[in-house]
C-alpha cells in the first residue's frame, strides 16, 4: 500500500541524476569486484600445466575438471565436510544465542552489571594470553580431541555482542516498556520482542559466525589433528595444499626432472580449493541476505 503511494510521487530532477550516478557506480563496483572471483574460477578450471604460462583472466584457456578431481581423490573430505557443517551449525547457533542474550542484557540501562560486563567483554578483543597457555588450558579442560573445542572457547564474541547491542539501542524503547506493563519478564521481552526485531543484525552476525566457523582450520590442527573422525574440511584441504606446494620429505634430492615436472602445479589446485571452500557459504548467503537487504516496518511488529 505504502509502496504504491510513494511510487506515485514523481521523482525530482536531482533524484534522477542521483539514480543515474548511483547505478553507474554500482555497476562499476560489480565489475571490479567480480573479477578476482572469476579469475579464481577460470584458473581452477584450467589445465594446471598451462596455468603456469599465466595470462588467464576470466575464461579458462584449456578447460579441465582435473584439478577438482585431484582434490576429491583425497581421503577424509567427506568426514571433514560433515564435521565442518556440524561445527558451522552448532557454532553459529551458540554464537547467536550468546551474542543476542548478552547484547540484550547489556542494552538494559538499569542492569547493574552493565558497565562491568561491557568493559570485561570489550577488553577481550585486545589481549590474548598467547598460544601456549591456551593450549595448556584446553588440555586441562579435557577438550583435546573433542568436538567441543570448536564451539565452546570462541562461543562469545565481544564484537558481535556490541554490534547487536547497538542495533537494539536503535530500536524504540517504548516497545519494551509496553511489554513490561503487560507483565512480561525480561526473558519474554528478549524472546518475543527483541529477537524478531533483530533479524537483520542476527542475519549479519550469523553470516560472520558461519564464515568464521567454516573457514577455520588452525584449531583443528592444534587440538584435533590426531583425531581423524573430528577433522574439518578446511583442515583436510589445507593438507592437500601444503603437499602440492612441494618440499616433501619423501622426495629425495635426486629425484629426476621428469617426475617433478608432472606434478600438479599448486596454482590451479589452490584455486580449485578456494572454490570448493567458498561455494557452500555462497549457497547459504541468499537465505541470510534477504534479512539485511530489505528494510522492515516496525508497525507490523507492534500490532
Amino acid at each position: 500500500m505504502a509502496r504504491t503511494k510513494a511510487a506515485s510521487i514523481k521523482p525530482s530532477f536531482s533524484d534522477r541524476v542521483f539514480d543515474i550516478v548511483n547505478y553507474t557506480f554500482m555497476t562499476l563496483v560489480m565489475i571490479v569486484t567480480l573479477y578476482p572471483f572469476l579469475n579464481v574460477l577460470a584458473i581452477s578450471l584450467n589445465d594446471s600445466v598451462d596455468t603456469v604460462r599465466g595470462g588467464i583472466t576470466i575464461w579458462p584457456r584449456q578447460f579441465t575438471l582435473e584439478n577438482y578431481m585431484q582434490i576429491f581423490q583425497y581421503e577424509g573430505l567427506i568426514t571433514g565436510a560433515k564435521i565442518s557443517v556440524l561445527r558451522t551449525l552448532a557454532g553459529t547457533l551458540l554464537g547467536l544465542i550468546s551474542g543476542s542474550m548478552l547484547g540484550y542484557v547489556l542494552s538494559r540501562i538499569e542492569f547493574q552489571g552493565r558497565k562491568f560486563m561491557s568493559t570485561f567483554l570489550a577488553l577481550t578483543m585486545y589481549f590474548s594470553g598467547g598460544m601456549i597457555p591456551v593450549f595448556i588450558l584446553i588440555r586441562d579442560l579435557n577438550m583435546m580431541n573433542s568436538f567441543l573445542v570448536y564451539i565452546i572457547p570462541g562461543m562469545v564474541s565481544a564484537f558481535n555482542v556490541f554490534v547487536i547491542r547497538s542495533f537494539i539501542d536503535g530500536l524504540p524503547y517504548s516497545l519494551q516498556e509496553s511489554a513490561k506493563l503487560d507483565g512480561a519478564n525480561d526473558f519474554t521481552i528478549y524472546y518475543r520482542i527483541i529477537l524478531p526485531l533483530c533479524k537483520p543484525v542476527l542475519a549479519t552476525i550469523a553470516l560472520f559466525l558461519a564464515v568464521g566457523q567454516w573457514n577455520s582450520w588452525f584449531d583443528t590442527y592444534l587440538y584435533n589433528g590426531s583425531a581423524p573422525h573430528l577433522t574439518t574440511l578446511q583442515f583436510e584441504l589445507m593438507k592437500v595444499l601444503q603437499s602440492t606446494q612441494g618440499q616433501n620429505t619423501g622426495m629425495g634430492a635426486g629425484q629426476n626432472m621428469a617426475e617433478i615436472v608432472k606434478q600438479v602445479s599448486p596454482e590451479s589446485i589452490k584455486m580449485a580449493i578456494t572454490i570448493v571452500v567458498t561455494v557452500p557459504i555462497l549457497l547459504v548467503y541468499p537465505f541470510l541476505q534477504r534479512y539485511f537487504v530489505k528494510g522492515m516496518t516496525l508497525g507490523a511488529v507492534k500490532s
Partner: peptide, 24 residues
C-alpha cells in the same frame, strides 16, 4: 533473569580469555 542470561557467558569468557593471561 538478566543475570541468568549473561553470567554463564561471562564465565566462559573469563575461562578462555582471562585465565590464559598468566602467560604474560
Amino acid at each position: 533473569i538478566l543475570y541468568g542470561m549473561s553470567l554463564p557467558f561471562i564465565i566462559v569468557v573469563f575461562i578462555f580469555s582471562y585465565l590464559p593471561v598468566w602467560g604474560w
